[in-house]
Design a protein around this nucleic acid. Structure first.
Lengths: 231, 231
DNA sequence: TGTTGTTATTTGTTATAACAAACAACATAC
DNA sequence: GTATGTTGTTTGTTATAACAAATAACAACA
């Protein structure tokens, strides 16, 4: 078997548990599962059209990654991120993403800066055109573009995990929030700081960005600490 | 079935995959697997006396936690932590453990401080009596005692993962290293800073502790970046 | 000698069935 | 009426077999 065939078969023969893993992750992020509800093996197997084996595999991985919670009887629960948990997640995010931004400022190269600039412009365009559904995606690429610039793979990986654990809550920042931001564009300031090689300022900007969004989300919480979509 | 029986059955009926997961984790930490080697399902199933199903479950969880690496054909590989990877791990450890120490200084209570003091004394005693095999265990309890004091569960959990990912390398700090430390006792200084409520100093001490051990381990690396036991 | 094709073995993946604990609904006894 | 026991259902766990891809060993051929 030659190299071409190898690549072909590698693409078309993605394991079923991998597919299930990805689909579950996306559904989580999109908020298609009710927080606190249990994910049932046979039920998911039906919707995926597979046996329970790959589903069980995907769920156990998700639980191991703390993306899902472990309920009684080793069942997998959709995490319900309350105000308290979100606050803790934000603390760790500030710490890790702050460090990543600081490192990025030290290691920035021309090509990387240009790519980030393009993403920033794209974000601006989407806000201007009110394309808020796709804004989040570009926003995510911008953030992780910065983190990847740190050159520390483990750091990026752990930040990805944190974003996943914030769950659908992260998507709540649109649409109201983004539009309400007039003066402070932390993203632009972050990029400027990185370009200037100013690690401390880059860290401060990303932390400001995270904390601002965090305060907004926490403001959405009711007395139980449950966070509801603003729209 | 009454409550007593429930608890009994809950204890004696730990899932097989959980057992395998724990045993594999401990073996990893103890360095009983050769770095870079593949963990084979049927082989491990034989040694555990089970079918491959629970073993597969345990391995997939370990890979999801990044404690094991994912090799070709979705096989699970024993990670071989080289100098480069260790350096990155240390960066993230400094960031997270530094923050945890800082928070601990703000939230310390009398009972917790007393417990930490006892652990510190125990560590001193073990060094004095050259009981270096059990030293590491107390050392670990001291560190995580501090982190737990932060009150941020997510932070503690992520630090645990980092320690696991450092793998057997962490155990290399004994015996030579600990005995070579004369003047600087970062652990005592850390505890003093926490007692004084001085978060910045607590963070500085834990970072110094991590970086000192890191420098020692990096000094053990050969030209390939492979780290070998000093003893 | 070096390359190629074939076969046997290894090894992860998936479906399936048997199983056991937990849960819910319902009936029975006091 | 409340408590208790029974039964059926749900649901995660485990063993097993069939499967497919990769690898290794080896034979055949140029």
């Amino acid at each position: 078997m030659n190299v071409v065939d190898q690549n072909l078969s590698r693409i078309e023969r993605e394991p079923l548990w991998d597919r299930a893993h990805t689909q579950l992750r996306e559904a989580l992020l999109a908020g298609r599962f009710e927080p606190g509800s249990a994910l049932v093996l046979r039920q998911l197997a039906d919707t995926f059209g597979t046996s329970i084996t790959p589903v069980r595999d995907a769920l156990s991985r998700l639980v191991a990654q703390r993306v899902l919670e472990q309920g009684p009887r080793n069942s997998a629960l959709v995490p319900d991120v309350r105000a308290n948990a979100l606050k803790d997640l934000m603390v760790v995010r500030c710490e890790l993403e702050g460090r990543a931004a600081r490192e990025a400022a030290l290691k920035a190269d021309a090509a990387g800066l240009e790519a980030l600039e393009a993403l920033l412009a794209e974000m601006r365009g989407m806000i201007a055109k009110r394309r808020l559904d796709t804004y989040l995606d570009v926003h995510r690429r911008f953030h992780f573009g910065v983190y990847a610039m740190s050159g520390i793979a483990i750091l990026v990986e752990m930040i990805e995990n944190l974003w996943l654990r914030c769950g659908p809550v992260l998507s709540f920042v649109v649409p109201e929030y983004v539009l309400s931001l007039k003066g402070t564009d932390h993203h632009a300031a972050l990029l400027a700081a990185i370009r200037a090689g100013d690690g401390a300022r880059a860290e401060a900007e990303i932390i400001a960005d995270i904390e601002e969004a965090g305060r907004y989300l926490l403001g959405l919480a009711d007395t139980d600490g449950r966070i509801r979509r603003a729209g």
